[in-house]
């Protein structure tokens, strides 16, 4: 880790974001700010609205109301591809990779798109940004499996590939929806350690959801708790842990499950 103190500037500002699905208020007036060099965890029981929040931030879903600003600029209404170009990387709760491509090709595709070479018709894709892709894979510990098809990878490995893909355009903001789902406990800690390293080194902001409380409390700088679409608590891990409302949700019977595929 570089250790050099970075300036903390707001990367993502969300104001009063709301979205309903046929009468169900999936996300209800949620506001928060995420700073650079910060890992912000969003936790809450299944169906609390976490993924819906992510989808509105990266442009996949249109909010009913509210504002989203990236580095001070409104990104409301932009499609996901434009938001990505502004430096927002995303990993999905249910991994989305290109199954018919190798691990390295998946990362190369992100690089090809980043450098706007996706319409190149002649030079083989495998020769584009080869070294850069390998460097990213090394960063997430997937370099040894670079030539395997994503369609045959283990779930935890896919999550790692997604992280490498999300890092390809040097994002200032990473949205990670359950980045460690489907991994063994030790792997989880390792991946989050890795993420923390990247955050400190590149001074980026990370918003992540996670059902494993050990992971959350060990790595988050700040925690938000979402329940039935509403933000009910926010603060340092210490403060959130001692919040009575949070304890009620987590001890009061709302089952919390791992979000990986059944």
């Amino acid at each position: 880790m570089s250790g050099a103190p970075h300036e903390r500037v707001p990367v993502l500002e969300v104001e009063s974001l709301s979205r309903s699905f046929g009468g169900v208020r999936a996300v209800d007036r949620v506001s928060f700010t995420l700073f650079s060099n910060e890992l912000l965890a969003m936790i809450g029981p299944n169906g609390a609205g976490k993924t819906t929040c992510f989808n509105m931030v990266n442009g996949q879903l249109r909010p009913d109301a509210g504002a989203v600003r990236l580095n001070g600029r409104s990104i409301l209404g932009l499609p996901p591809r434009s938001i990505w170009r502004l430096g927002v990387g995303r990993t999905f709760q249910i991994t989305a990779t290109f199954a018919s491509m190798t691990v390295r090709e998946n990362v190369q595709m992100a690089l090809v798109s980043h450098y706007r070479r996706s319409r190149a018709l002649w030079r083989p894709a495998r020769d584009h940004y080869f070294d850069e892709a390998m460097a990213l894979l090394e960063r997430v510990g997937m370099d040894r499996q670079y030539d395997r098809a994503c369609g045959v990878l283990a779930y935890g490995d896919l999550k790692r590939v997604e992280l490498a893909v999300a890092l390809a355009n040097e994002p200032g903001l990473l949205l990670m929806d359950e980045p460690t789902a489907g991994m063994a406990p030790r792997e989880r800690m390792e991946l989050m350690q890795l993420t923390t390293g990247i955050v400190r080194e590149r001074n980026i902001g990370v918003l992540f959801t996670e059902h494993d409380m050990d992971v959350v409390f060990a790595h988050a700088d700040r925690i938000m708790v979402l329940d039935r679409g509403q933000l009910i608590s926010e603060g340092t891990p210490m403060a959130v842990r001692s919040d009575r409302k949070v304890q009620e949700i987590y001890l009061g019977g709302s089952a919390v499950h791992d979000g990986g595929p059944a």
């Binding site: 591809r81 989305a96 199954a99 992100a110 798109s113 980043h114 355009n169």
Partner: peptide, 13 residues
């Protein structure tokens, strides 16, 4: 074809 979701999330039109 493989994943329209991922394609959009890496800036592909």
């Amino acid at each position: 074809r493989d994943s329209p979701l991922r394609a959009a999330a890496i800036g592909i039109d």
